[in-house]
């Protein structure tokens, strides 16, 4: 199903997509986001806008989407299942569409215990799998999730989901990805890849099931600023794997930041050239957005295709 998403056009054309990420601030000014958007706009096809990531209250992802769109980048609105029930989700999705957003990424969301309101309730009225179905039902069947008809102007999003090749049980991650495709996901962004060997094994299983031919898979990468960041992720973030040699390489580097960028560029080039079935890259430069243009250029992914 064709939507008005530019990202979809690029991916459907068979071009190697590039997306990045912008995290809304913990205040009510759009200045910083606009600044980041201007910095990225020539170098990426779309940017994700995180939805209260790590359960920390931030400016609304949909409101942020308006600022990003206004700054000349196509937003991918992230929607987690933690904070809204199905009524609020559908309402926000229609609102987002009315504001010009054309891509949604469905995810469970981090548990609130990690955020700045650990004593809050969580919702999870629908899960990420069901949210994909909800979006498909609204778009393809012109129905609300309950089955009630949407008489006109149904939201027509390009529907994304996530996959984490580094979480367990490893083999089931591939089956679950297939389940998301069955549910209706059209593009997939993966968790940050540091353990390339494991990602290759993951993609091998993905190809064996033919999943890469049914969905656009964008490999997630993150440039690291130094060995401490690597060590932190290695020890403290559930569902991520950072090989020790990567930590050591950053530790022994003369200029760790430069080395972090080098590693990221190597990863992207390797993925693009050697791992079949990957249709793009999703660069999550956490609090380091300014480095994205350099990475994109050094990977030979600049200029980006023009879509009207």
């Amino acid at each position: 199903m064709k939507t008005e998403s530019k990202l979809q056009q690029i991916l459907d054309n068979g071009q190697f997509g590039v997306t990045a990420e912008i995290g809304p601030p913990k205040h009510s000014s759009s200045e910083g986001m606009r600044h980041h958007a201007h910095m990225l706009k020539e170098h990426v096809d779309a940017t994700n806008i995180t939805d209260n990531q790590t359960a920390i209250v931030r400016l609304s992802s949909i409101a942020a989407g308006v600022h990003i769109l206004d700054s000349g980048i196509e937003p991918i609105v992230q929607m987690t299942c933690r904070d809204r029930n199905r009524i609020a989700m559908q309402s926000d999705l229609m609102g987002a569409y009315s504001l010009g957003m054309r891509n949604v990424l469905c995810l469970s969301g981090d548990h609130q215990q990690f955020g700045n309101h650990p004593t809050s309730k969580n919702v999870y009225d629908v899960d990420s799998m069901q949210l994909i179905q909800l979006l498909r039902r609204m778009r393809d069947e012109k129905k609300f999730f309950s089955g009630e008809e949407i008489k006109e102007h149904e939201p027509r999003f390009f529907i994304g989901a996530v996959a984490n090749p580094f979480a367990d049980p490893f083999e089931y991650r591939v089956a679950r990805l297939e389940k998301k495709v069955e549910a209706g996901a059209e593009f997939i962004q993966t968790q940050c890849i540091f353990d390339m060997e494991r990602f290759e094994r993951f993609m091998e299983m993905v190809r064996a099931r033919g999943i890469d031919e049914r969905v656009h898979i964008l490999a997630g990468v993150t440039p690291l600023k130094g060995w401490r960041a690597a060590k932190y992720i290695q020890n403290n973030v559930s569902g991520m794997i950072v090989p020790e040699e990567l930590v050591q390489r950053l530790k022994s580097a003369e200029d760790p930041k430069k080395e972090g960028v080098n590693i990221c560029v190597e990863q992207i080039k390797y993925i693009k050239e050697n791992i079949k079935g990957v249709h793009g890259v999703h660069i999550m430069a956490i609090a380091w957005e300014e480095v994205v243009p350099e990475i994109v250029e050094r990977c030979g992914l600049y200029p980006r295709p023009k879509i009207n």
């Binding site: 548990h111 609130q112 215990q113 650990p118 004593t119 809050s120 309730k121 969580n122």
Partner: peptide, 12 residues
């Protein structure tokens, strides 16, 4: 005040 839901199922 709002309840501390960590003591309920929301805390796991």
């Amino acid at each position: 005040p709002p309840k501390d839901w960590t003591k309920s199922r929301d805390g796991g």
